[in-house]
């Protein structure tokens, strides 16, 4: 009988000791980075999917249960994943509420682009109050995201600080190594202009010295109209633009029309991990995007 109780006690003790930190991320990109930093001490789920427009994620009750069980949530922030707030609130999980130890806003420390100045309203389209939120598309911002995740993990599990820190250092080292390769590959586009569908690529373009003189959307979130399409065609001809870069969930009707009229190359890529089956992690996301962009 004693042995039985000892066995049960050991079983529960080992379960407790081996318990992984349960993380719920707003996006697959944050999930991927959290898996690098957290290693085998974390279990990470993403609320959104890879080929999903993060502006249009509908919060569902089943998602509440994921957050209910979470030790940590990872938010993109800058009001892109505003749907996470209602899920966190509905979960009543004190650990992951705003400002608590398990709440990580990955935008902390990001040098933001396109922060609106002065009054903003609907005439400017779908403008984000705190600036362009697509910051994970600059690979170097991946290191800031990782640092935020590291800080969160250390708050929750200080005894594993060295383990997480080593993973974080390895992640940053790999980013630096890959950056050299990506910069070399992207040299052929450096200083040149491309067109993007939405302003999702501002951070990416800045990092690789690409100009984006015009987007397919006349203003963020507003669908293209015939006048704007003519303006795009004029810009393509005037600036000798060769590429339109489109996130793989946007409609291609207007883009294909412009391509047919101008001969410009349409490059459709995922802007999130998991958006294509070959894109399984944060590094593969840039491998994929850059290989498609630089393909002759």
């Amino acid at each position: 009988m004693k042995k039985f109780f000892l066995f049960v006690a050991l079983f529960f003790a080992s379960s407790f000791l081996n318990a992984k930190i349960n993380i719920v991320a707003a996006s697959m990109d944050l999930k991927s980075i959290a898996e690098f930093v957290g290693g085998d001490k974390v279990s990470v789920e993403s609320i959104s999917e890879g080929a999903q427009d993060l502006h249009f994620v509908e919060p569902r009750p089943s998602m509440v249960m994921k957050i209910k069980k979470a030790d940590m949530v990872l938010k993109i922030g800058l009001e892109l994943d505003i749907w996470m707030d209602s899920l966190i609130s509905a979960s009543r999980n004190k650990k992951v509420m705003y400002g608590e130890v398990g709440f990580v806003d990955c935008s902390k420390g990001i040098e933001r682009l396109e922060v609106p100045q002065g009054k903003i309203d609907g005439s400017m389209g779908d403008i984000h109050l705190y600036g362009n939120p697509h910051y994970w598309l600059d690979p170097l911002n991946g290191k800031i995201i990782a640092k935020n995740i590291l800080d969160g993990l250390v708050r929750i599990s200080p005894e594993n600080k060295d383990y997480f820190k080593k993973n974080y250092d390895d992640f940053c080292k790999k980013i630096d190594e890959k950056m050299k390769i990506w910069q070399t590959q992207m040299e052929k586009l450096s200083g040149k202009s491309i067109i993007t569908y939405h302003r999702s690529w501002s951070y990416f373009a800045k990092r690789f010295n690409i100009k984006v003189p015009i987007e397919i959307e006349p203003k963020p979130g507003i669908p293209p109209n015939p006048n704007h399409i003519l303006k795009i065609i004029d810009t393509i001809k005037r600036e000798n633009i060769k590429i339109i870069l489109v996130d793989n969930f946007y409609p291609l009707k207007a883009v294909n029309k412009i391509a047919a009229d101008t001969g410009v190359r349409v490059v459709v890529v995922p802007s999130n991990v998991g958006g294509e089956k070959e894109v399984r992690d944060y590094f593969e996301l840039f491998d994929y995007i850059i290989s498609k962009l630089t393909k002759e």
Partner: peptide
């Protein structure tokens, strides 16, 4: 400065 110093 456009650096995000705190959570959104």
């Amino acid at each position: 400065s456009n650096t995000m110093t705190d959570s959104t």
